[in-house]
């Protein structure tokens, strides 16, 4: 397993350990092989154990005082864990006659608890998206459409020129906008993830991702407003709102077609993101370099 594969979860674990008041430096991470938990932490220490790969076993008749975090691989509890166990990914098996005295929290992966195991406090958070009913889907779609329409309406009233400039760049310079959007979007995202790996820069990383999402929202509102200009509606703000709602519905419908839907969404997102950047958020119309000849 590549370190970058488990790194996002490792960062989460670091934050959890930090939040619990324990020392993140003291944690022991197992990436491969079969190890006994009491061998991972020496002499009954309570240093956190992170299972990122391989198999870590708490042997029968043994008691481990360390909190255990499972983010990959397999953890098998045959004895007693006298602390919390958190499963983010990977597998946890609590066998018969085994015990976990602290909380057992499962956010992902597979958790199997045998009937005769003792786990007094168990929480399972289902983070996987469950299948929505048709009514729920339509409701969610309507909510998204309304939210973007409201944003487009507001922007069309407050900054109509900026919105129009971004929209014009999307249609007039779609290729350039798409290239800049895709390139900037990917590199910024990679950069923010790299910042998160340093742990110290996690707040900057989170802010950056939030900033990217806000730019994206603005871009989608501008795309909607551009679409609205083609609708037979006189009031520009209402047209922008209608266009934005239409865009959300159109993208959702396209999403039903495999590959095409994803490509369409990716294209709109890239072109929109790039158009916002090349027009300085709509402050200045994009002019390509002048090449004589």
């Amino acid at each position: 397993m590549s370190v970058t594969d488990v790194l996002p979860l490792l960062v989460v674990v670091l934050l959890l350990i930090g939040a619990s008041g324990a020392d993140p430096d003291a944690m022991h991470v197992v990436f491969e092989g079969a190890r006994d938990a009491d061998a991972v932490v020496a002499g009954g220490a309570t240093d956190p154990i992170v299972v990122a790969g391989g198999t870590v076993t708490v042997p029968a008749n043994a008691t481990v005082g360390s909190p255990v975090y499972v983010i990959g691989g397999t953890a098998v509890v045959e004895g007693t864990v006298d602390a919390e166990v958190t499963v983010l990914a990977g597998n946890l098996s609590v066998l018969d006659d085994a015990a976990i005295t602290g909380d057992l929290r499962s956010f992902g992966g597979t958790t199997t608890v045998a009937a005769r195991a003792s786990v007094p406090r168990r929480t399972t958070v289902d983070v996987a998206p469950r299948e929505r009913t048709l009514a729920e889907r339509l409701g969610f779609l309507a909510m998204q459409a309304l939210a973007l329409a409201a944003l487009a309406f507001l922007l069309a009233r407050r900054a109509p020129d900026a919105l129009a400039t971004v929209g014009d760049a999307m249609t007039g310079h779609a290729l350039v906008s798409g290239v800049v959007g895709a390139l900037a979007g990917v590199t910024l995202l990679v950069g923010f993830v790299a910042m998160a790996f340093t742990v110290v820069l996690v707040p900057v990383s989170v802010l950056g991702v939030v900033g990217e999402l806000l730019v994206l929202l603005y871009a989608l509102a501008a795309a909607g407003a551009r679409l609205g200009r083609a609708l037979p509606i006189d009031r520009p703000d209402v047209a922008a709102a209608a266009g934005a709602a239409l865009l959300v519905v159109a993208l959702d419908l396209l999403d039903a077609i495999p590959v095409v839907g994803a490509l369409a969404t990716l294209t709109v997102v890239s072109v929109g993101f790039g158009a916002v950047l090349v027009t300085y958020f709509g402050w200045q119309a994009f002019e390509p370099a002048d090449i004589p000849g």
Binding site: V3, G33, G53, F197
Partner: peptide
């Protein structure tokens, strides 16, 4: 970054990221 992490977690050193 990957090399620094591999120094902390030596068992990951053999599988660098394709990114």
């Amino acid at each position: 970054t990957e090399l620094r992490l591999a120094a902390v977690f030596p068992t990951t050193a053999g599988t660098p990221s394709l990114l």
